[in-house]
Amino acid sequence: MTRIAIVIGSTRPGRRGTAVARWVEEAAGRHPAVKAGEATVEIVDVADFGLPLLDEAAPAAFGQYSNEHTKKWSEAIASYDGFVFVTPEYNRSVPGALKNAIDFLYNEWQNKAAGFVSYGVQGGVRAVEHLRLTLAEVKVADVATQVGLQIFTDFTFEDPTNPMDPGAVTPGPHQEPTLNKMLDEVFAWAGALKPLRETAAA
């Protein structure tokens, strides 16, 4: 069975990422591979791990972790075959918390697949461009199809003038088919890369 983590990349109070990740999880539950028991998806929230700014003395490639928070993060990420990263766009890039979380590890990311669900005024697409470069360095195979949720068309707000209103995720009708196509690619790549993961583990 292919295990996919939906990684919430923002840790900001009042973030929209939690609602977006729940939409991804719910919609993914309707995907044929998930319904058939061939794949599972579950949310992994960076905020739950309490990662400080990178505080390991040894480079991540050595896998010699001295801190308990790193070991817990390592164990979680190592258990998955691929990822769907949920990220907003902060100043044309990803949140610092997500970049920091990626930098904590190295081998745990390798030979796995990744897709992206971004959100923001511009749909978060520029954040994903940066994220693709970072993940390439840790040998994650990113798929082409991505979901970009627009703040003004894919969310509904009780009070649009209130910047603290996270809004409800109400994706347009085209978004779930795009998500399904992305998941098709993530599942396929995760499966194709399995022999490399097994060789590395051996």
Rank of each mutant, 00 (worst) to 15 (best):
W109A: 14
D184Q: 08
H174G: 15
A97Y: 01
M164F: 11
A60M: 01
T40D: 07
V186S: 05
A61N: 02
A136Y: 10
V140I: 10
G14D: 02
T87R: 04
P173C: 08
P160H: 04
P95W: 06
V46M: 10
K35C: 08
E108P: 10
L149T: 04
P163H: 09
V20S: 07
W23A: 06
S118V: 09
V44C: 00
E25M: 06
P166T: 01
S93R: 11
F85E: 00
A192N: 09
T156N: 11
A33R: 14
L53H: 15
H69L: 03
T11M: 01
P13D: 00
G115S: 11
A144Q: 13
V84E: 02
S74F: 13
V24N: 00
Y119L: 04
F157C: 06
P177N: 00
G96C: 02
E198R: 09
D165R: 07
A113F: 06
V41F: 13
K71T: 00
P160S: 11
A76C: 13
W23G: 10
P32S: 12
G115V: 11
G124S: 10
A36I: 08
T18Q: 15
E185N: 10
Y90E: 05
A101C: 13
W73F: 00
S66D: 13
V138S: 09
G191W: 06
I102M: 09
V138F: 07
D159L: 00
A114V: 10
V138P: 10
H69K: 01
A39G: 06
T18F: 15
L53A: 14
G123R: 11
K72L: 06
D55M: 09
D103R: 08
G172E: 01
L54W: 09
I4K: 00
A28S: 15
Y106E: 08
A58I: 03
A114M: 11
R3H: 03
L51S: 08
V86D: 01
E89N: 03
P32Y: 05
A144C: 03
A192E: 03
W109S: 09
E75L: 01
T2N: 03
A200K: 13
L196V: 06
V121I: 12
A47H: 11
I77A: 05
A168W: 00
K35T: 11
A28Y: 05
N67V: 04
M164E: 14
D142I: 09
L98R: 10
N67S: 13
D81L: 00
Q110F: 12
V34E: 02
K112F: 02
T153Y: 08
F85Y: 10
V44E: 00
T153I: 06
P173G: 06
K99V: 02
V125K: 12
S118I: 12
R12W: 04
F62I: 10
L54E: 10
A19M: 12
G9E: 07
A201L: 14
H130G: 07
D154E: 07
L193W: 07
K112C: 05
E185Y: 06
D165S: 12
E56D: 15
S79P: 04
Q150G: 13
S93Y: 05
T199Q: 15
P52R: 04
E68N: 13
T40H: 03
I4C: 00
N111V: 03
K194Y: 03
